[in-house]
Design a binder for these strands. Structure first.
Length: 918
DNA sequence: CTCGCCACGTAC
DNA sequence: GACGTACGTGGCGAGT
């Protein structure tokens, strides 16, 4: 005997045990994996703990119509077993896959049960001098234990020796079958003899030796009933014995070489465990294989890589039909298919996220689910296949893209609109934009990007751009992405857009107001925004350069003074360094704290400036630094090379209230409040022969609040064209309107705006530099005098609590789930419930005006361009000689776009630059 | 070097 | 914690 041990795994029994022992485990696609997991854990533990020399797994493997000898012998054999549950049935193929991936031999034979195979194998192994360890917990198999044969139950961590069998059955293992014949087995429906169980059976066999001897000596057995039963059921006991006796003569070929534990099929193992989401089991096993010298880190990495590639191609090949087009014939066929389908999702692939820089690399179409076609036109990497030219493709697809009556679906179609426009194609007939659909359904979400939409509405994870193009410094532009990767990626974009549109539309059909908002407001607005972005605004670079130099000088002066007062070099832009200087070196009092330490913000520095000269200088420095860094130096960088203008992005699906936002650069926060900052506006100029018109809604939000609340005092005031801030001052200070001081009016204005944001007394006290009780009394007075506003706010919160959302006048809906919360989350949502209907209605109104005005500009060929929107203000660039005529038309269009009980008033200014136009 | 977070400040 | 909605900057620490 060479001391080697053969581990024989009773696979079938573990399958069942694991299935019932582990509940509720499934992978993300919903397939139950509980039994596979338990089974796999068993094998893993076996390998790790035992490091077996030789190993084999047995399965019961008999077809339904090929009965085992036991079934032939006894028709009721295992008859009380219920049918295999479906959750287990679908896991069956995987047990074999796991074992095969681990490269462990499987023993199975048609019409033969695992127990018999184990018995035969055990016998043969012992004959050639091997030790045997049976991995099971089946009592039937205990009859095999003996010299060199043990049993191990990895699930319970129990080992069984012949002594343990003696303890349980009171007989040696070779006689266990007689005990079982008497005791029977309910789980296999083996009858045995009534009234005799393991204990009694054991005693009897211990006394008589075997079944036949016992039956020949029934008269010697004690107990009347027991004697009767043994007599009556003698044949049943004989039958049971046949059933429990294991066959030791199965025709198996026993090849020791074949049974050695050998390195697994790592590729198969990685893929399989990934599919099952057994990543941690795989990690543990790989660690063991590594220790064994069968695996290295490099290989593990390679396997992961291949898995990623596999992922992409598998989705592509198995589930999705994604392809690329290289010939005109194929392109024409595609266009015919699209026309037949009656609608299509469209997406461009380009070299840049900036639509004014982007070059078209390819385009994709999807006209039926799980199907997408990519038409590459400019992949220029080494070895790229020959592609159709952009010119030819555009010629063919332009009629489709320009057809206003052929419905198209886009995701953020403004981008495609702009890029196509630059290529001379007018993208028309876009009926749905999934980004805008998602936005109107829930404007509070932080993303309405395609990846988010795919995940939220289709439960699908898109191929990531970084997976095809890489990340960071080495990120490829799309023209450098190999078509093997580009095609599935680009096709998926169109496919997902199409499929998401169906889901989004279903949801929108439940909310007709929101669907209307999408169809009649957001979709037409997108095009208007595209036009505005393309228009851009002219910027005088020289003015900015001059300001930059001016600010630079000031900054250097201030820096020197700051260093002196601080007693060393300090960066005034570093809150960390300022903390050190102000609160440690100078030991100034801490007024406010941030998450990371004492605050050094404006309000703090203002308070400290009464105690020390340094904070004032820091404030000065900050102010110059902000203007220089954010505006004066940043803006020239964004001037477009060809147009000499700045083309901002107007984001249409960002703000939770329905407002627009602007970025690259943000032209909605150009300074105006300080004289120095306001100078920056001088750099925004009109083209030659033109003037800028700035038209802004006067107090639009207050007027909306007056209208929506119906407050009689406010409405009356607006009706009579009264000064609303002075009125509020007279109300809260309880003085006559004509005696209101400018100081009081300022307070009135602060409160007018503050209440709409849900401002508390603390903030008001700080802003007005008054005491908290004073501030509180002002607010109380406000709601006392404007009772309609008080009631309206209460109703807004109550409605929002009841419905879970806030509504604007036009039915735009903002979900407020945190109204369910307590504390800060709740308070926040309450303020949003008050502010959103007001801010959001203002946003809706100006959007409607923009759509109408742009329509008129085009229809009547006005020599006017809409350039910017700043929430309550529109900036136009108008030919000088047309200004006088168009200015009042534009203003009245803005005023008349809706009719409110507090009339909308538009104020306007004209100038050569934005500063003068205000 | 790149990324993300923080603190801060600008607009309406 | 304390006023709604945004965007961009520089600093800074953690990761590459």
């Amino acid at each position: 005997m060479d001391g080697k041990t053969l581990y024989l795994v009773d696979g079938s029994s573990y399958i069942y045990r694991a299935f019932y022992a582990i509940r509720n485990l499934s992978n993300s696609s919903g397939m139950p994996t509980n039994a596979i997991y338990g089974f796999t854990q068993m094998l893993k533990k076996l390998i790790e703990d035992e490091d077996p020399d030789l190993i084999a797994v047995t399965f019961d493997a008999f077809d339904a119509d090929e009965h085992t000898f036991r079934k032939k012998l006894y028709d009721d054999y295992k008859a009380n077993r219920s049918a295999m549950p479906d959750e287990l049935r679908i896991q069956i193929p995987y047990f074999r896959k796991v074992v095969e991936a681990l490269n462990i031999p499987i023993m199975e034979q048609a019409g033969v049960e695992a127990d018999d195979l184990i018995a035969t194998a055990t016998l043969q192994a012992r004959d050639i001098g091997l030790g045997v360890c049976i991995i099971s917990a089946d009592k039937d198999l205990m009859q095999l234990l003996g010299d060199g044969v043990t049993m191990l139950d990895t699930m319970r961590g129990r080992r069984y020796s012949p002594d343990d069998v003696m303890e349980r059955f009171a007989v040696t293992p070779d006689r266990v079958k007689y005990v079982l014949a008497l005791a029977g087995d309910t789980s296999d429906n083996i009858p045995g003899v009534p009234g005799i169980g393991e204990k009694t059976g054991g005693k009897l066999i211990a006394e008589f030796g075997d079944l036949e001897t016992l039956l020949a000596n029934i008269d010697k057995v004690s107990g009347k009933k027991r004697k009767e039963n043994l007599t009556e059921f003698a044949d049943q006991a004989r039958l049971s014995l046949e059933l429990v006796t294991l066959r030791e003569d199965c025709p198996i070929i026993f090849d020791t070489e074949h049974l050695h534990l050998s390195p697994p099929n790592f590729q198969a193992l990685t893929e399989l465990f990934h599919e099952l989401e057994f990543e941690s089991v795989l990690q543990d096993l790989n660690r063991w294989f590594k220790a064994r010298g069968w695996l290295d880190d490099r290989t593990i990495e390679d396997l992961k890589d291949s898995l990623r590639d596999e992922e992409i191609t598998r989705t592509d090949e198995e589930r999705k039909d994604y392809s690329a087009i290289y010939t005109l014939e194929a392109l024409d066929a595609l266009l015919a298919d699209i026309k037949a389908a009656g609608r299509v999702a469209f997406d461009l692939e380009t070299t840049s996220v900036d639509p004014l820089q982007a070059r078209i690399v390819g385009m994709s179409f999807a006209y039926k689910p799980n199907h997408g076609v990519y038409i590459p036109v400019a992949h220029t990497y080494e070895g790229a296949p020959e592609q159709l030219s952009l010119k030819v493709v555009l010629e063919r697809v332009a009629p489709l893209l320009e057809d206003p009556d052929f419905p198209k679906i886009g995701q953020h179609y403004k981008y495609e609109w702009l890029v196509l426009k630059r290529h001379g194609v007018a993208f028309r007939g876009v009926t749905f934009d999934t980004m805008l659909m998602s936005y109107v359904l829930d404007p509070g979400k932080n993303s309405h990007g395609l990846d988010t939409i795919a995940f939220d509405f289709l439960h699908h994870r898109n191929i990531k751009f970084t997976d095809v193009a890489g990340r960071g410094k080495n990120q490829l532009t799309f023209d450098q992405v190999p078509l093997e990767k580009a095609t599935p990626y680009a096709s998926e974009d169109a496919d997902i857009t199409l499929m998401a549109c169906d889901v989004l539309l279903k949801q929108l059909q439940e909310e007709p107001k929101l669907l209307e908002l999408h169809n009649s407001l957001e979709i037409p607005l997108s095009r208007v925004l595209g036009i505005m972005e393309l228009n851009g605004v002219k910027v005088d670079c020289d003015i900015l350069r001059l300001l930059s130099q001016e600010f630079e000088v000031e900054l250097e002066k201030l820096q020197d003074e700051i260093n002196v007062l601080a007693g060393g070099e300090v960066n005034p832009n570093s809150p960390t360094q300022l903390r050190e200087v102000l609160f440690e070196r100078l030991e100034l009092p801490v007024k406010k704290r941030t998450k990371t330490g004492p605050s050094t913000d404006q309000s703090v520095l203002e308070q400290l400036s009464e105690l020390h000269p340094l904070p004032r200088l820091i404030l000065e420095y900050r102010s110059f630094s902000k203007l220089k860094g954010t505006y004066v130096d940043a803006l020239p960088e964004l001037i477009h090379e060809e147009t000499g203008r700045i083309h901002t992005d107007f984001n249409q699906a960002v703000a939770a209230t329905g407002r627009l936002s602007s970025s690259n650069p943000n032209l909605q926060n150009i300074p105006i409040r300080t004289d120095r900052g306001r100078e920056i506006r001088r750099a925004f100029i009109a083209d030659e022969g033109h003037l800028l018109l700035a038209a802004d809604y006067s107090q639009i939000e207050l007027r909306i609040m007056a209208h929506l609340s119906g407050d009689p005092v406010l409405l009356e005031a607006y009706h009579n064209g009264q000064d609303i801030h002075a009125l509020t001052a007279s109300q809260i200070f309880d003085v006559a309107l004509d005696t209101v001081t400018s100081e009081q009016r300022r307070a009135g204005k602060t409160i007018n705006f503050g209440v709409m944001y849900g401002m508390g007394p603390r903030r008001l006290a700080r802003d007005l530099d008054i005491s908290m009780p004073e501030a509180k009394s002002y607010i109380d007075n406000y709601f006392e005098r404007y009772k309609g506003v008080a009631a309206y706010f209460e109703k807004l919160v109550a409605d929002a609590v009841e419905t879970g959302y806030a509504l604007t006048m036009f039915g735009r809906k903002r979900l407020l789930p945190t109204l369910e919360n307590k504390g800060a989350g709740r308070a926040f949502a309450e303020r949003a419930a008050i502010n959103t209907p007001i801010q959001g209605t203002a946003a809706d109104i100006i959007k409607l005006a923009m759509i109408d005005i742009q329509k008129r500009i085009e229809k009547e060929h006005w020599p006017a361009r809409m350039l910017l929107q700043v929430h309550d203000e529109l900036i136009f660039e108008i030919a000088e000689d047309a200004m006088a005529e168009l200015r009042p038309k534009i203003c009245s269009m803005m005023e008349d776009i809706v009719s409110l009980n507090a009339p909308l008033i538009v104020e306007s200014g004209v100038g050569k630059n934005w500063l003068d136009a205000k």
